[in-house]
Design a protein around this nucleic acid. Structure first.
Lengths: 347, 347
DNA sequence: GTCGAAAGGTAAAACGATAAACCTAATAAA
DNA sequence: TTTATTAGGTTTATCGTTTTACCTTTCGAC
């Protein structure tokens, strides 16, 4: 591989001059500059980022820690981070924790097993001397991932840090739930069931609040019997839907598209038609939603934007040294209207 | 950040000794070793991979070039690469070309626009001084991505290189198509339609060969009128299915699950039931397949294994210097049986 | 004619680790 | 006794850049 020094020798100048030219420093003559640039091109010189990093003590590299890269939310968040970083001349290195694969879909390991997975990844990023780190969670919760005095600037995406110094970028669950439940109400539904995720999960709780708020604003009584909890998966949702659809609900708000799939399956069992006999609303706008028949009305997650904002905050911190004024950024979701929610007459 | 030199001073030994201890070299006394290791731990020393990389002229980093990381096949291939590399002590750096996003879903840009996207990514990986590169394609074709005398060891995943020195790891399209069509035949179907992808695409052509082979082995006449081409997407498949289902076919082999979604939609329009009135088989086992109603019988892509094998080949080349004996590795797909294919009586 | 500033450079040190060569004392072998 | 070997180190150079400090020459102003 050709080095600066070789370019310098070829042009009869010092390595310093070549370096100055390539880095756009002033005080170089036009003819020298041209000759050097030509030689660089001719000899196929590629700057050595390793050597640069060592000397500059800056790598222009951002570390991304992903809880699970095959989780459906992750690639798009990562892509949001990457494209923003790339635009600003930063590289990214992804470490995949494979959390859910390792915990065999239990969603929650214990704290010590978590740290035995996380800490080596963190170590590694420190050894690479990344300039900053973004942690991409698979689902929202409060995570104890960065120690109190963590030396590298960091940002959380899609979850909260228990360390108050770390900014977090999350979705606005409550408003999103409010929006889609309000939509159901606008279509004439007043008896609206809910199939939530895990009961103590932040997504579930916030979305339930949004549901309650929408009901309250429309003076609809909140009936706790119509609120059921599955485990974010289709099977549990089928089970809960069977019970729920014994009641007089005309619509159901499922807190995940996968669970809406369970509601569809249950209705199919019962010989009822989605969007005709029962309205179903989802959440996530996972790619499966458009293949449901009829298409699932749902809330689209602003995944790419989450990554984008997280990167913005981190890079601002790194480049300008400024702390963001808001430590918690909530991004709104978007209603995607398909055919699973029908209009009914008000009673 | 604490350095080797500081550890050395603290322990009254030379930096070399500390380095030797940390790298497991022989010729160090047990007491010195223990003292150094304690100090390393106490002072929180993290080796500087940047400095290591510069001195060793090896970064233990593999570059991954992804055509599009949000393409459904990509994350799992990448995960396969990452977990294999991690196991062997290699890091990975992902560059996302965002090809399909940039080409606005046309699937094919022209050669010069392609290189204006690829070349900077390649340059960047060279500047990082990666030890090797894996190119992860979004769909199979012959790609002109590495120049003839490319100086860094490289491997293609999910597509072919036009440079014969570069090994490729791809799926065995023909056998997979043969397997699922044979399955249809085993269920009594003899009039089997096909909805393929783009006509000149390698996947399409190979899968068609598998289809023909299965027919031939069962002495079923090949009827070209039953073979239609959509563009890998649902909408085109609906269009083609409308025509196809005017014929006497009892089953259809769709070369992508998304297109099977189109067949489902068309059958729904016509008031026919999948898995009862018409058998539908897919390809990909994309996550949507299990949410189809009834569940879609399809071929699962060995994505993780593709990544795993590609990494194996690359690392062997890097570590041992051996060229792989086979330049083209085909990985078989797996039949996933759900409910979209029913048994019919033979005539 | 001298002083100051600017233009256009160069030399040497440094970033943090490691490889290669070298050193010393103790022990073993001849 | 002499020589060789080994254990347990140390010294020095080096990887490819960039930074800091320094050096000329030229030109314009006074």
């Amino acid at each position: 591989m050709v080095t600066l020094k070789e370019i310098a020798k070829e042009c009869n100048v010092s390595p310093t001059t070549v370096s100055n030219i390539l880095n756009g420093k002033p005080k170089v003559g036009d003819d020298t500059k041209q000759k050097v640039l030509e030689t660089v091109d001719k000899m196929g010189y590629k700057p050595n980022y390793i050597a640069q990093g060592l000397r500059r003590q800056k790598t222009r590299t951002i570390g991304i820690i992903a809880e699970d890269i095959v989780q459906f939310t992750t690639p798009e968040i990562v892509e949001g981070i990457m494209s923003n970083c790339e635009e600003k001349g930063y590289r990214t290195v992804v470490k995949n924790l494979r959390l859910y694969a390792r915990w065999q879909d239990t969603w929650y390991g214990n704290e010590s097993s978590y740290h035995s997975i996380l800490d080596p990844a963190l170590q590694e990023l420190e050894s690479i001397r990344v300039d900053g780190i973004i942690y991409v969670a698979g689902h929202a919760r409060i995570i104890n991932c960065f120690p109190q005095d963590f030396p590298i600037p960091a940002v959380m995406a899609y979850a909260f840090s228990n360390n108050p110094d770390i900014p977090s970028v999350v979705i606005d669950d409550q408003s999103a739930a409010w929006e889609i439940v309000s939509y159901l109400i606008s279509k004439g539904h007043t008896k609206i069931g809910v199939i939530g995720g895990m009961k103590n999960n932040i997504h579930t709780q916030q979305r339930l609040l949004g549901y309650q708020k929408a009901l309250f604003e429309n003076q609809i009584l909140y009936n706790p019997n119509w609120v059921r909890y599955a485990e974010w998966e289709k099977e549990g949702a089928v089970r809960e839907a069977r019970e729920l659809f014994k009641t007089e609900v005309t619509a159901v708000f499922c807190m995940a598209d996968r669970m809406a799939g369970g509601a569809y399956a249950c209705l199919d069992e019962m010989g009822l038609r989605v969007g005709v006999d029962m309205a179903v609303a989802g959440f996530d706008n996972q790619n499966i939603a458009e293949f449901f028949m009829p298409g699932l009305t749902t809330m689209a997650l602003p995944l790419k934007e989450i990554g984008d904002r997280a990167a913005n905050i981190l890079l601002q911190k790194i480049q300008g040294g400024e702390e963001p004024e808001e430590k918690l950024v909530c991004i709104p979701c978007t209603l995607i209207e398909r055919q699973s929610v029908h209009q009914i007459k008000k009673e």
